[in-house]
Design a protein around this nucleic acid. Structure first.
Lengths: 74, 74
DNA sequence: ACATAATGTAAAATAAACCATACATAAAGT
DNA sequence: ACTTTATGTATGGTTTATTTTACATTATGT
């Protein structure tokens, strides 16, 4: 599986943004809900392109959503 | 090939950092030289994980190296 | 009780990132 | 002339991200 070293705050951010649902976020950034599920679970790290789109959706700099480090849970 | 919308300043940064070579950068971030070549050419956008490692190598925030937009050349 | 909406989980298929290898070219040094 | 170093280019193979489909669960509303 190859150890994913990138974590994120997507789940928290969804609830801070008008209780946005997984499906709504998926639609906004142009992926399927399964992709959002996988990212929230930390199954793998997204493409840089997708990371940018998610950051844009939440109006935040990319590095306030995604972080790199040993501790996948920050 | 799927239209890459992410650009970067890797090539410029290599020369600003002690004339770092493609191979040296590749070694530092743990990929092959071919991957660096492909990134500089804009063939595709890296994984978020690799993007983080590159940013770390140059001691810069990720978004000062990679950018998202219509104009792939900034 | 029934329907609907949000989420969890799983597996097979496709697409994209990345590797391995190989050869070619141009510049720089000896 | 020869060697070395950095880079460009190409191709086939492996790994990882993402899609598609499908079914289960829990909560909410009627």
């Amino acid at each position: 599986m190859g150890k994913n070293l990138v974590g994120n705050h997507i789940r928290k951010l969804r609830f801070n943004h008008d209780e946005m649902t997984q499906q709504q976020l998926a639609d906004k950034v142009g992926v399927t809900r399964q992709t959002i599920v996988a990212l929230e679970k930390g199954n793998y790290s997204p493409s840089l392109e997708l990371a940018f789109r998610i950051a844009h959706t939440f109006n935040l700099p990319l590095e306030e959503i995604f972080y790199y480090g040993e501790n996948t849970k920050q």
